[in-house]
Amino acid sequence: MSEEVDISVEFAGIRLANPVFTASGTSGYADELGDFMDVSSLGGFITKSITVKPRKGNATPRIVETDSGMLNAIGWANIGLDAFIDEKLGALEKLSCSVFVNIAGETIDEYVAVAERLAGERAIAGLELNISCPNVELGGISFGTEPEQVAEVTSAVKKVSGDKVLMVKLPPAVTNVSVIAQVAVDSGADALSLINTFTAMVIDIETRKPVLANRTGGLSGPAIKPIAVYLVNKVYEEVTKSLGIPILGMGGIRTVSDAIEFIIAGASAVAVGTANFVDPGCTAKIVEGIKKYCAGKNISNVKELVGSLEAEQDAAN
């Protein structure tokens, strides 16, 4: 067993101590996690969605548990750009992991306004462009499903984001995710994150009404993991591999082996979402587990694992 495993990764020009992030909307502004783990032990941290103006979010119920998953319809509840900069950036700057801010808006101008303000902030390594949220009436997923819209919002934000890494978060439920991925990259995305949640519904059969006040919500959790692994691998093979664009893979990760599956599929790094709700310290365990797995397989650098999926099933099987 090799003692020294290097699990640091280079991600769109940024050096990450390890390939594990917490996913946007599942770990607040980072201070909430402090009682349960050392956030600096992550490779990267992604804030919840930040919009120009504060947003109250949707009415309740905002969540419902499903078999091996959950639906959420929070509706970008956040304190708004000004309060985020005044109240949260200071603490984020002290973290030794790379901080990404998830940015959202109802119009392209709103995305641009948030990106422009954050471009000059030292605390931030990159922006995650949320064009795939299923839970708001305007904006969100409507930007992520039409290639022309993806191009327009991505290039507009790229123009104002200075030296910040621009990562575009893709929706899973499109005819061909590779088309959207290609457009995002062509329009200036330095990295891609996938997948966001699937639009879904739960009905109360007593009242015959949707359980969520928002009617629909985004499905996350272990239930979506195999689809996410497939889509990451598809985008890796069809779009990013040849271009050297990194993927942040996510969707139902809660164990070490889940994370490793995504890396083998082609993700340079992974983000843990819903699992933080159950065990807010689980990402630290996943970081350690990746190290152990590499050591056990005599892999000296986790890079070797990225996209290492064997092409064919063994004929003997």
Partner: peptide, 26 residues
């Protein structure tokens, strides 16, 4: 209904009045 209990998920919103305004906050 709450997923995490530690303000990560933002799902357990309670609509509250604000002083000096008709606006409510969650």
């Amino acid at each position: 209904r709450m997923a995490c209990g530690i303000s990560l998920c933002q799902s357990c919103a309670v609509e509250c009045r604000t002083t000096g305004s008709n606006e409510t906050v969650y």
